[in-house]
Design a protein around this nucleic acid. Structure first.
Lengths: 118, 118
DNA sequence: GCGATATATGAACACATATTCATATATAAG
DNA sequence: CTTATATATGAATATGTGTTCATATATCGC
C-alpha cells in the first residue's frame, strides 16, 4: 500500500505523517469491539440501569422486559469487556458498573443526539 | 412490566424513579445506532484519516487498503449518520468530518483502552 | 455526441449476532 | 440427599452486516 495521494491534494510528507499516525490494527480492533458493545439497545438499557444502582439478573430481566436468558447472555458480553462486575450473594448474583468511562461515553453520545435533533 | 424489585434490594420508590429515568426507546435506539457506526474497524480507520485531513474516496481506499466500493458503502453509512460531509470538485468527491463529537468519542475510547491494558 | 475517470449502488454471499428454548450448574434450606 | 431457586450456557434460528462483483451514474475534456 503506497502512501502517495492520487488526488494530489495532500503533500506526500503530510500523507506519510497521517498514515504513520494511524493506531495499530490491534488498537483499532479493540476500539471497534468496545463501541460495538454499546451498539445494542438491550445492552444500553442494562448499562443505564446499572449506572443508577446494582441489580440482580432477575431484576434486570424485569426492567428491560427481556427473558432472563437473554439478559444473562448480554451480561456475559458486558463482563468480558469489563464494563460490569458481579458479586454473588447466595444464589443471587448482583451486577454493577465496572468502568469509569461508561458515564462519559453516554454523555457525549447524548450530546450528539441532541445536536442531530436540532 | 412491573417495577417491583424481586430481590428486595432496592426500595420501590427508588425503583420507580430509576425506571422512569430510562430514556425513551426512540432515544435508546438512536444511541445504539450511533455507537454501532463506530463498531467497525474500517469505519474507524476512515474516521481517523478524516480527523486529520479531508480525502477523496480513492485516497481513502488506498489508505485503508480496501476496495473503492467498500469504502463508498461505508462512507454512505457515515454520511447518513452525519458524521462526515462531502463536497464535489469535478468528478472527485472529497469527504471531511462533520461532527464535533467524533474526536471526543475517540479520546474517551482510547482512555478505556489504556485502562484495560493496565 | 463520445470516451475516460471518479464515485455510487444493487445483488449475492459469507459471516456475525441477538434471541429463544431447553438444560446445566450452583447455592441454600429442609 | 433432595428440592427449590437463581443464574449460566449450548444449540438452533432468524436477522443484520461487511465485502465483493458487476454495473450505473455523473462529470470532464475532446
Amino acid at each position: 500500500m503506497t502512501a502517495k495521494c492520487l488526488c494530489k491534494s495532500v503533500p506526500d510528507a503530510e500523507m506519510r505523517k497521517i498514515n504513520k499516525g494511524l493506531p495499530e490494527s490491534e488498537t483499532i480492533d479493540y476500539l471497534s469491539d468496545f463501541f460495538r458493545v454499546f451498539g445494542d439497545s438491550t445492552r444500553l438499557r442494562i448499562l443505564y440501569f446499572l449506572s443508577r444502582h446494582e441489580f440482580c439478573v432477575a431484576d434486570l430481566a424485569i426492567l428491560t422486559g427481556m427473558q432472563q436468558s437473554a439478559v444473562s447472555h448480554q451480561l456475559k458480553i458486558l463482563r468480558l469487556h469489563r464494563l460490569v462486575r458481579s458479586r454473588r450473594d447466595g444464589t443471587t448474583i448482583y451486577y454493577a458498573l465496572d468502568d469509569l468511562h461508561v458515564q462519559k461515553v453516554f454523555d457525549i453520545a447524548l450530546e450528539h443526539v441532541k445536536e442531530s435533533f436540532k
